[in-house]
Design a protein around this nucleic acid. Structure first.
Length: 439
RNA sequence: GACCCUAUCGUCCAGCGGUUAGGACACCGCCCUUUCACGGCGGUGACACGGGUUCGAAUCCCGUUAGGGUCGCCA
């Protein structure tokens, strides 16, 4: 039987990073065995069921590049994939339980009568766990239907997993304690339970379950703050799973090749934005220029950078790519290349241009550059260093003023690359402008 | 409270009876005669505690403590 896994979020208005990781693991596992990932929306709670909430799930999954083979938007042989549209199916299974004498009414709601036995969960991550369900006080019969006829999660979740022929249920550990109840349902329905794998939870810095209020708990946070999907995917897979050999930076194909449920640990992990940030820089550095451009263009466009030709933009992106950490920083990092009205950072001006002798050095450098016949990164670098040595000065004493003069900032791409792209005339003019700015 | 899970540097992850307990992020220092949210080198820093088992325990067992989860007519 081919592997079928599922991601079954409820539309809460945003995609939680924990959910994203669950989707990731389900996807990895299904692909590893040539199986399918099914997207099912658990929207039995009417209140949450809005089109926007649904869209947040699609947007998040699409942004990450996770693909599912069956779902509300894709169809499939076991649809519909929206629980709100599966009422007839639930009625059928409900009748089956009723026929078997498993149900009873309680205050208008319907409960499932527990067999009151010990249920053993054989979890692919957690191992074999026995739950003693005999005490009705500690394990009350679960409600499966409300008085208004609507369904409760436990019931529809199990019915759907049976109907959709799920072979593996990979979900958060918060469901581990619910699993024996689900198994009771499978047994009452005469169905074989799927294999379960409960993955550890993602906690915030206080050690509590990551909630909506925590920074970075929503996948949208990463999209908005200039993270690249490959870095987020990489970071997420490292929470609770290890590729072995102390590997940290991985591409999706590498993750796919190395992933296995047996390498998932059972400890909850605290979400650490710092490492994700570092990974983001690493992935940007290592990705192709084309990919970087593809990811940067929305930010550049949004900031209305007048980059002129595509060729000019690509040149700018090339010199910025090795150092930039967030896509959202790209506009600020390349903006000065395309306008003579670039702003001067007062602090940078103070530090680099108002130092004793700084403007003199800038003038000297300008003169030397003016006589330079060839304007390329190597020739510019050679001339600047030559000048520094001949004057007994440190290279940095020329580099700093030049950088601030030409870009208005103390940080940015490599100086010589910047100068080359700008061209000699603009550089010399900017040196002049800097003198005015420093005055 | 009951039940379940967990317990290695601040954080993430290695370790699966014998290691100077390893890597990464962060932090600190030095270097790169180009600043840096670049790069290189080095450093600080952990086996929660108490009992066992064993020639030998971070590794196995028990207990304690701590943290997390579940006990909904939420999902």
């Amino acid at each position: 039987m081919s592997v079928r896994t599922r991601f079954a979020p409820s539309p809460t208005g945003y995609l939680h990073v924990g959910g994203a990781r669950t989707a990731l693991f389900n996807s990895l596992y299904a692909r590893k065995f040539g199986g399918k990932l099914i997207l099912r929306i658990e929207d039995t709670d009417e209140k949450r069921n809005t089109p926007e909430a649904m869209q947040a799930i699609y947007d998040g999954l699409n942004w990450l590049g996770l693909e599912w083979q069956e779902g509300p938007d894709k169809g499939g042989d076991y649809g519909p994939y929206l629980q709100s549209q599966r009422n007839a199916i639930y009625e059928k299974y409900f009748a089956q339980l009723q026929g078997g004498g498993h149900l009873y009414e309680d205050g208008g709601a319907v409960r499932f009568r527990s067999p009151r036995k010990t249920v053993t969960v054989e979890d692919l991550v957690c191992g074999k766990i026995a739950f003693d369900m005999s005490n009705p006080v500690t394990h009350p019969d679960m409600t499966i239907r409300r008085p208004d006829g609507s369904w409760i999660f436990h019931f529809v979740n199990v019915v759907d997993d049976i109907e959709m022929k799920m072979t593996h249920v990979i979900r958060g550990e918060d469901h581990l304690s619910n699993t024996p109840k689900h198994i009771e349902l499978y047994q009452a329905l005469g169905a074989e339970p799927p294999k379960f794998a409960h993955i550890p939870l993602i906690l915030n810095h206080e050690g509590k379950k990551l909630s909506k209020r925590d920074g970075g708990s929503s996948l949208a946070y990463f999209v908005e703050n200039g993270y690249v999907p490959e870095a987020v995917l990489n970071y997420l897979c490292l929470l609770g799973w290890s590729p072995g050999e102390n590997r940290e930076m991985l591409t999706m194909p590498e993750i796919q090749a190395l992933f296995g449920l047996e390498d998932i640990n059972r400890r909850n992990a605290i979400f650490d934005l710092d490492k994700c940030f570092w990974l983001n820089g690493q992935h940007i550095q290592h990705m192709s220029l084309e990919r970087f451009a593809e990811l940067s263009v929305p930010c550049v466009t949004k900031a209305a950078i007048p980059y002129g030709t595509e060729d000019a933009l690509m040149k700018a992106l090339t010199i910025v790519k090795p150092k930039v950490k967030h896509l959202t920083d790209v506009p600020a990092w390349i903006g000065f290349l395309f306008t003579e009205e670039y702003p001067f950072d007062p602090e940078a001006v103070d530090k680099a241009l108002r130092k004793p002798g700084a403007l003199d050095r800038l003038r000297t450098l300008g003169t030397a550059f003016g006589e330079l016949a060839e304007w390329t990164h190597p020739s510019i670098e050679a001339r600047l260093k030559e000048l520094a040595i001949s004057l007994g000065a440190k290279v940095g004493e020329f580099v700093h003023p030049a950088r601030v003069a030409v870009s208005g900032k103390a940080v940015g791409p490599g100086l010589y690359e910047m100068l080359e792209i700008l061209g000699k005339e603009r550089v010399l003019a900017r040196f002049q402008r800097a003198e005015a700015a420093a005055a």
